[in-house]
C-alpha cells in the first residue's frame, strides 16, 4: 500500500534556527493524523512543507509514493484549510468552492454538481450566493472545508482550523470535521496545540517538541502511557512525583484518593501531608496536598478543609513511570 505522505529525514532551518529536525513520519491512508505540540514545536512548519509552501532544508517528502520535495503547491493535489480560512473575499461561497475545480478545468455541469455536493456536506447549500464577509466564523470555516475537499485531495491539511472559533462552537465543529473525514474517507493531517482536539479527532497522534518527534501513536495508547514528562504535561497530567520504590511517576488526580484522618486505607502507596487547597467540583473535591517537598493533586468525597492532616493513596496500577533520564522542561508551554 502506498502512503499518502512520507517524510524522510526532513529538516527545516530558518537562518540559524532549526524549526524541524530530522523528522521521519508516515501518514496512514484514510486516517486522521494530528500534529500536536506547543507553539514553536515545528508542527505548522511541517504542515507547510507537506503543502509545498516551504521547502525542506534537508530530507525528502513523498506524496502517494512519488518524490515531491520540490513540487510547487499547485501540483500536489492537497486540500488545505487555513487558520484564517483565507476565503477569497471577491467571490461568492459557491465560486470559492468552485475555484479548485476551475483550476482543474472541470466542466460546468460537473463543477455545479460537485460544488453542490460539497456545500451539502457542510450544510451550507442555502448560503451559496453569499460573500464570505457576510458569514459567521463557523460558516466561513465550513466554506473553507468544502473548498478543500471538493477537489478530492489526496490529503486534507488542516492548520489549526478551529482556533478562531469560540469554545462552544469549537467543540461542535470538531465533531463535524470528524464526520466529514469519515464520510469522505479522506486522509487528514491536522495541526493543533489543543490536546483535547487531538484526542478526540486523531487516529494517529504525533507529538512534536522543539522540531523533533517526541511520541507517536493512537490516542488510546499515548494518553495512558506518556513517554516523557513533556508529553504528560502536554496531555494535562499535573502530578509529577517521586514515589519511594517507583521513582519519577505521574498520575491523574482522579486516581489519587485523599483520605481524611481516621479513614481506612484500602491498600497502595501512602503519603502523609497537609491539605493546602480544596476546590469543590460538584461530585467531588480536588485537593492539593503538601507532602514533604512535593505537592500531590487528588480527589476526595470526604469533608476536608485546608490545613487538615491527610493521607494520599496512590494506587500502584495507576502510576505511570516516566523515564529517569528524559530531559524535564519547566512547563509544557515553555520549551524554548
Amino acid at each position: 500500500m502506498v502512503n499518502p505522505v512520507e517524510l524522510d529525514g526532513v529538516t527545516r532551518e530558518f537562518g540559524g534556527v532549526t524549526a524541524v529536525q530530522d523528522l521521519d513520519l508516515t501518514v496512514p491512508e484514510g486516517k486522521f493524523t494530528a500534529l500536536l505540540g506547543p507553539s514553536g514545536c515545528g508542527k505548522t512548519t511541517t504542515l507547510r512543507m507537506i503543502a509545498g509552501y516551504l521547502a525542506p532544508t534537508r530530507g525528502r517528502i513523498l506524496l502517494d509514493g512519488a518524490e515531491a520535495t520540490r513540487l510547487p503547491p499547485e501540483r500536489r493535489n492537497l486540500g488545505m484549510v487555513f487558520q484564517s480560512y483565507a476565503l477569497f473575499p471577491h467571490l461568492t461561497v459557491a465560486k470559492n468552492v468552485a475555484f479548485g475545480l476551475r483550476m482543474r478545468k472541470a466542466g460546468r455541469e460537473e463543477t455545479r454538481r460537485r460544488v453542490g455536493e460539497a456545500l451539502e456536506l457542510v450544510g451550507l447549500s442555502h448560503l451559496a450566493e453569499r460573500r464570505p464577509r457576510e458569514l459567521s466564523g463557523g460558516q466561513q470555516q465550513r466554506v473553507a472545508l468544502a473548498r478543500a475537499i471538493v477537489i478530492r485531495p489526496s490529503v486534507l491539511l488542516l492548520d489549526e482550523p478551529l482556533s478562531n472559533l469560540d469554545a462552544r462552537l469549537r467543540v461542535q465543529m470538531r465533531q463535524e470535521l470528524l464526520n466529514v473525514q469519515r464520510e469522505t474517507g479522506v486522509t487528514a493531517v491536522l495541526v493543533t496545540h489543543d490536546q483535547d482536539e487531538a484526542l478526540e479527532l486523531a487516529d494517529l497522534m504525533v507529538i512534536l517538541r522543539d522540531g523533533r518527534l517526541e511520541q507517536l501513536g493512537h490516542p488510546r495508547d499515548v494518553f495512558p502511557a506518556p513517554a516523557s514528562r513533556f508529553v504528560a504535561e502536554f496531555l494535562g497530567y499535573e502530578n509529577f512525583l517521586t514515589v519511594p520504590g517507583h521513582g519519577p511517576v505521574t498520575i491523574r488526580p482522579e486516581y489519587v484518593r485523599v483520605l481524611a484522618a481516621g479513614e481506612e486505607p484500602p491498600g497502595g502507596t501512602l503519603l502523609s501531608g497537609t491539605a493546602a487547597r480544596v476546590t469543590y467540583r460538584g461530585t467531588d473535591c480536588l485537593v492539593a496536598v503538601r507532602a514533604g517537598d512535593q505537592t500531590v493533586l487528588g480527589t476526595t468525597a470526604a469533608e476536608i478543609r485546608p490545613g487538615d492532616e491527610v493521607r494520599v493513596l496512590l494506587p500502584g496500577d495507576r502510576l505511570i513511570h516516566l523515564p529517569e533520564n528524559a530531559p524535564v522542561p519547566a512547563t509544557a508551554g515553555d520549551t524554548r
Binding site: 503543502a51 486540500g79 483550476m103
Partner: peptide
C-alpha cells in the same frame, strides 16, 4: 488583505501567474 489568499489559490491548483 489576508496574505494567505495567494497560498490558498496556489494550493487549489493555480500557478503563480494565475
Amino acid at each position: 488583505a489576508d496574505p494567505m489568499l495567494e497560498e490558498a489559490a496556489r494550493g487549489l491548483g493555480a500557478g503563480p501567474v494565475t
